[in-house]
Amino acid sequence: MSTLGTLLRGVHHVAIICSNYSNSKRFYTEVLGLPIIAEHYRAERDSYKLDLALPDGTQIELFSFPNAPARPSYPEAQGLRHLALRVSDVQAAKQKLEEAGIAVEEVRIDAATGKAFCFFADPDHLPIEFYQE
């Protein structure tokens, strides 16, 4: 009997609900430079859905919903901890963000893998990590 693990092929998308669609759209498309796959306004929900592409085929779905409740985010809270994006050069990626006015934590080295990484936040303070490829 086959296990479910043999059927899994990777992550298709990560969905994010933002508080300010214009600010988040600008951040993900202009600051991070993610290309838009599709953008839809759903009038019945007064909601936008923006599909963004990552180079490996993974997508980020950015949603807006009126009056969506805030989600507390603490480094060790239960639930999704952060979104990690693979980069070819953590220091260069960090510098690009800082040039765009984004606060970025110092580059650290993962004790288990020896890889460089750093954290920053999107406009809703969701933690995002750049991780050395």
Rank of each mutant, 00 (worst) to 15 (best):
S47Y: 07
S88L: 14
S47I: 06
S24N: 05
I60L: 09
H82M: 11
R86K: 14
E39F: 07
L80V: 13
G33E: 06
A53C: 06
A70M: 10
A70D: 10
P75R: 13
L80R: 07
P75N: 13
D51C: 06
A77S: 15
A70Q: 12
Y28E: 00
L34F: 09
N23K: 12
D89K: 08
E76M: 12
P55C: 11
E30T: 09
P66M: 06
Y28R: 00
P66Q: 03
E39N: 10
N23M: 12
P55G: 10
D46N: 09
T58I: 05
I16Y: 07
E39G: 08
R42Y: 15
V31A: 03
Q78M: 15
I36K: 03
R71Y: 14
K49M: 10
F65W: 08
S64V: 03
S19P: 00
L85P: 01
S24T: 06
P69A: 11
R71D: 13
I36C: 05
L83S: 10
S24F: 02
Y48E: 04
A68L: 06
D46F: 09
I16M: 05
L62P: 00
P35T: 04
F27Y: 06
L85I: 11
R81H: 15
S64P: 02
A38F: 10
H82C: 11
L54G: 00
L83H: 06
A68M: 09
V87L: 11
Q59P: 01
A38I: 03
Y21R: 01
N23P: 00
D89N: 14
D89A: 12
S22Q: 13
F63D: 03
R71G: 08
V31G: 01
R86S: 14
Q78S: 14
S73M: 13
L50W: 02
S19D: 09
R42F: 15
S88G: 12
H82W: 11
L34C: 05
N20E: 13
E61M: 04
R81F: 12
P66G: 04
L62F: 01
A70P: 02
P69T: 09
Q59G: 01
Q59F: 03
S22E: 13
I37F: 10
A38D: 15
A53F: 03
S73E: 14
P35S: 08
Y48A: 04
E61N: 06
I37E: 13
N67K: 09
